[in-house]
Simulated scan of single mutants.
Amino acid sequence: MSEANRPLAAALWMIGSITAFTAMAVAGREVSSVHDTFEIMTWRSLIGFVIVLAVATVTSRLHEVKTNRLHRHLLRNLTHFTGQNLWFWALTMIPLGQVFALEFTSPIWVILLAPIFLGEKLTRPKLIAAAFGFAGILAVARPDFSTFDPGIAAAALAALCFATTNIATKSLTRHESIISIMFWLTGMQLVMGLAMAGYDGDIALPTAQSLPWLVLIGLCGLTAHFCLTSALSLAPASVIVPVDFIRLPVAFSLGWFLYGEGLDLGLILGAGLILIGITLNLRASGAAANRALLQQPMPPKAMTRRN
């Protein structure tokens, strides 16, 4: 079945990705007083690499790991590693909801860049979804850019890195299995994490308090990317990535509940705008998929035997 025929299935995978990324954000904030961002990425990648290697071995799928597109994997993982470190650092600098709000310029970048790098069509529903999503972000976050804030800059740059990562992931799903993508994701970023965390010869080992959170980060990071890659293999990036906007009201709710961060009418209004944009985009994609299916030539009817 072609990717355009399964937007709703892809949306369900994205919900799994949203859940995992949100849990990872909470865990990342909890260990930030013990480990720096490079150390967090190192332990996360180590846990993920061990799991991927074990699953690939047990299921006899290690042969799916390919080496003929290493340059694409390297570009994807270098960009993601940069964005992820900026994201973890921003979590310690600005409120949780604001980090997510700025991060969610990423789907807008995907919608706008996918036609250039992936050849996807920039349709009216996609533009409407981007407009609603952006309006929702402004309503919820109401960012003040009159003064330079390092945390805001880090979150904004992370969003651009994540958009590039999603486009690169979509390109790789056309040629490689999820096992191969996840193997190089965790393996390459483990090397990058070790290099950056150990440049000063001092890597903080997990403590009794931080180890459960680091394990959660590793499991959630792996789960999030598995769900994201699965979603991108089932539908166009510019259709599926806007579903990730749901993570914004979730983040504000968690920030309010766990850390006493603000929760007001702007959140409700912004969440409503975001959900409207997502719904319109998914409905348009589903309708387009059905039209494409109906336009396919019918197979010739089998010859019936004459009595």
Rank of each mutant, 00 (worst) to 15 (best):
235 A>E: 00
185 L>G: 01
32 S>E: 05
203 I>R: 07
4 A>W: 08
285 S>V: 02
95 P>D: 07
22 T>S: 15
84 Q>W: 10
109 W>C: 10
81 F>T: 04
42 T>M: 12
124 R>C: 12
245 F>L: 07
45 S>P: 09
75 L>F: 11
247 R>M: 08
38 F>K: 00
36 D>W: 07
70 L>F: 13
124 R>I: 15
96 L>C: 08
274 I>Q: 03
14 M>A: 09
110 V>M: 00
13 W>V: 09
27 A>N: 01
9 A>C: 06
193 G>R: 02
268 I>V: 14
179 I>A: 10
34 V>S: 15
38 F>H: 13
4 A>T: 12
186 T>V: 10
79 T>A: 13
273 L>F: 12
154 A>N: 05
194 L>D: 03
56 A>Y: 05
35 H>D: 05
218 G>V: 10
285 S>D: 10
22 T>V: 15
214 L>A: 02
222 L>G: 06
239 V>S: 06
89 W>S: 15
107 P>H: 06
127 L>Y: 08
23 A>F: 13
92 T>R: 12
248 L>A: 07
281 N>G: 06
165 T>F: 11
20 A>F: 13
274 I>E: 05
212 P>Q: 07
258 L>Q: 06
305 R>G: 10
2 S>Y: 06
36 D>K: 06
292 A>T: 09
105 T>N: 09
68 N>Q: 11
56 A>H: 02
150 P>V: 09
89 W>D: 14
291 R>Q: 14
29 R>W: 05
241 V>A: 09
157 L>A: 15
59 T>I: 03
286 G>V: 12
184 W>P: 01
22 T>M: 15
118 L>P: 05
89 W>Q: 15
288 A>C: 02
14 M>K: 03
126 K>H: 12
30 E>K: 11
168 A>P: 00
237 A>Q: 06
68 N>L: 09
73 H>T: 03
110 V>W: 00
112 L>F: 11
97 G>F: 09
213 W>S: 08
186 T>M: 14
49 F>N: 00
49 F>G: 01
144 D>T: 06
34 V>N: 10
306 R>N: 14
60 S>T: 13
182 M>W: 01
236 P>T: 00
156 A>R: 01
84 Q>L: 14
199 Y>D: 05
208 A>E: 10
15 I>R: 05
70 L>T: 01
103 E>G: 09
231 A>W: 07
286 G>W: 10
211 L>F: 14
159 A>M: 04
237 A>Y: 02
30 E>N: 09
47 I>Q: 01
299 P>T: 12
282 L>Q: 13
301 K>L: 15
186 T>E: 07
6 R>D: 06
181 I>G: 01
304 T>I: 14
96 L>E: 05
85 N>Y: 09
57 T>F: 11
138 L>P: 04
87 W>T: 08
227 C>H: 07
79 T>Q: 05
124 R>E: 10
198 G>F: 03
100 F>I: 11
77 N>D: 11
305 R>Q: 13
